[in-house]
């Protein structure tokens, strides 16, 4: 199966790989997995005044899963959490030209950012 240039670019030069301190108050952590293939993804955000100022990820999985999470961390930096919540897997899949068999990788990335936001909101009394 051929990967698109964008997938290869994110796979070979993943943006924002790493960790934030999950115990910090401003940090939200989302950990999700794809049971069908065993991929696991951790995506973390730092939020200040409702704006995502930093994002990091660690993904153990295929190229498409790594590219999807890398792309999402790029996108969400500078976004309001309300807007980041609206990110759809279809946008990720479209940007990376993912083939149908790899759509679940973009779903995983959407789930990860939503889980990270939910974790942050939980720490702050889930005002939404």
């Amino acid at each position: 199966m051929a990967y698109s240039d964008k997938v290869i670019d994110h796979y070979e030069n993943p943006r924002n790989v790493g960790s934030l301190d999950k115990s910090e108050d401003e940090v939200g952590t989302g950990i999700v997995g794809a049971p069908a293939c065993g991929d696991v993804m951790k995506l973390q955000i730092r939020v200040e005044d409702d704006v995502i100022t930093d994002a990091k990820f660690k993904t153990y999985g295929c190229g498409s899963a790594i590219a999807s999470s890398s792309l999402v961390t790029e996108w969400v930096k500078g976004m309001k959490i309300g807007d980041a919540m609206q990110i759809k897997n279809s946008q990720i899949a479209e940007e990376l030209s993912l083939p149908p068999v790899k759509i679940h990788c973009s779903v995983l990335a959407e789930d990860a950012i939503k889980a990270a936001i939910a974790d942050y909101q939980k720490k702050h009394g889930a005002s939404e």
């Binding site: 997995g33 049971p35 069908a36 293939c37 065993g38 991929d39 696991v40 153990y60 999985g61």
Partner: peptide
């Protein structure tokens, strides 16, 4: 079996 798949990946 799902746990097995995750462990296999690891």
């Amino acid at each position: 079996l799902v746990q097995r798949r995750y462990l296999q990946r690891f």
